[in-house]
Nucleic acid binder design. Sequence first.
DNA 1: AATGAATGAGATTTCATTCAT
DNA 2: AATGAATGAAATCTCATTCAT
Lengths: 190, 190, 190, 190
Amino acid sequence: MSGTQERPLRADAARNRAKLLDAATEVFTTRGVGVPTEEIARAAGVGVGTLFRHFPTKEALLEAVMVRRLETIAAGTAELAAGAEPAEAFFGCFRLIVEQSAGKNEFAQALAAAGIDVHSSLRASSAVIRTRLAELLDRAQRAGAVRADLALPELIALLIGTGATLEQLGPDPAAHGRVLDVVFTGLRPH
Amino acid sequence: MSGTQERPLRADAARNRAKLLDAATEVFTTRGVGVPTEEIARAAGVGVGTLFRHFPTKEALLEAVMVRRLETIAAGTAELAAGAEPAEAFFGCFRLIVEQSAGKNEFAQALAAAGIDVHSSLRASSAVIRTRLAELLDRAQRAGAVRADLALPELIALLIGTGATLEQLGPDPAAHGRVLDVVFTGLRPH
Amino acid sequence: MSGTQERPLRADAARNRAKLLDAATEVFTTRGVGVPTEEIARAAGVGVGTLFRHFPTKEALLEAVMVRRLETIAAGTAELAAGAEPAEAFFGCFRLIVEQSAGKNEFAQALAAAGIDVHSSLRASSAVIRTRLAELLDRAQRAGAVRADLALPELIALLIGTGATLEQLGPDPAAHGRVLDVVFTGLRPH
Amino acid sequence: MSGTQERPLRADAARNRAKLLDAATEVFTTRGVGVPTEEIARAAGVGVGTLFRHFPTKEALLEAVMVRRLETIAAGTAELAAGAEPAEAFFGCFRLIVEQSAGKNEFAQALAAAGIDVHSSLRASSAVIRTRLAELLDRAQRAGAVRADLALPELIALLIGTGATLEQLGPDPAAHGRVLDVVFTGLRPH
DNA sequence: AATGAATGAGATTTCATTCAT
DNA sequence: AATGAATGAAATCTCATTCAT
């Protein structure tokens, strides 16, 4: 639908690719990007060779994990944004993104540090989200639900920063609620 | 009372220690904690051997960098908190911490991931800050300057998250101002 | 009499075998024996699986390539040696072998290095050539066309070395001619 | 004197570098260029890390071995060429080069196959030899000791090819002598 | 005390070969 | 019979840490 895969990919190969992405997401998120590749292969129940057939480099794997995450988020926002009125759409998407972003920072840093041209392969999926966010922000501002002086870069930075905040708090719903209330209040006009 | 090296440290040794801390702060911040120790030594203009004489472990170096950062922040908040009325003290310190925190997250994560007992050596300086923050928050809440439902853990998480936000934005004073305005507005009652 | 696969081989299988041998000859010669098997399969337009069905081992493939080469050479010398007088037969065959030998050295080395009993599978075809060479040398020496002190091992070494010389020169007919003139002059009595 | 080393190299480092080059020469020559790097390190009595500090790549090691070989040869020819009359100088150097060349071919192939710009680092030492050969050839041709139609490229090719011939023969002095007699006879006018 | 070479465990990656499709 | 994905042993290379100079 959006992808890069040249050919449909054989059934078992697709399954392994998915298993690898799942395992990598899990392992990278819980134990950091420093884990040996072999651990990820083991977690996915395949050999290292298979991992490297699918992702020729550790960085490529990292990248693929991020792309998938972004695509998931993009899909989620698409649904949410579709049938809602501006304020609800904006704040709903903010919450969604922020709650799905735990651990994403480290990936981004790792990729950036590795000197990868993050844009080359992440561009597509991140552009989708970027565009959607611009629309959401615009509609919400026109509807008077969000302060007018906020620009897209700050919104994105706030999404990332709020994700970091929640990550820091651990899974405490009440605390999450209070933090989001702080940010949402701050985002509304006056 | 707390340290391991009580001896006054020869003049050149002290100089090298400082050079190493400066170089490490710079390099870790710009290129991530994954950089080889030798790069740090080179950036400091000393040999690896010297680095390891001063810091027996890469993690020890990381830790020392963080401690110095925290101490700087602690000192800054001490000054600010001293002669100001509650609201000014609280928001002033918030701004100070957040602006000095760029890159700090990664250190914390790296240390935590390394399974270090962060508290053992960071406890002292982080306890100082923690206590000060508790006081600032309490006074500001009593004075009605900050919403009453906010607890210390959320405050700390917000500090870290807002630091991440600003880091993400890069050095754009106007955008920084808008982001802080959002958060500060959200922090005030109603 | 000699082989392992006595069955006639299905038409397409035979075609694949031929394509593989051609591709392997080409690839081994131009890029060395270090190329991954998959490259050879790709060059032949088949999957690796097919390659390994035909040649159970990379070395087996190497061997098959050499055997085919030797057989080609043997066939050529047979024709040449048949109806010619001793000197012409000897020098004609020398030239033929040497010009077809480009790249052969590396195969020999690779096989030898691999600790293979080169003789086991190459014996047949190399024995044919060896015998023919002995005859050619003997007849030429009796006819006074070649110095009498030259033995078969030196002749073989000279064939290989002269092949290497020509390979080194690249495709320059004039230079080839001068080199062969040097060697042929040296081979004649006084 | 001719080298690339930036600083004089500490005594032990120089010793290890030499040990590594010796071991590599030995091992590559006897067992081919396919031997694992670790074997070479072991043969040199150092750890792999040391090997990779001196030669950041297997190819770099290969290259260094060849450079040293060429330098040895260049030095040998310098001595020989100095005080001898043309014919003696030419044939003496030919013999010298050819006898020191055993196994060199494989290196060259391995390097070339690896896509290295062989010229960049080998150029210097090979240029020295090339120039000397041109002089030797010229003087010998003027003195009437070598056929006039032979050009430098053929001479070089013959050197390599004759090296291959001797390598093929194994260490049999009598056979070596006959082969060299063939080639030398062929090289003289008529 | 400082240096930077040496170390080797461990990380990443390759590739001959097997096996499910 | 053909395919190409999977495998894992082995190869190359990195880097925190030690140690001779």
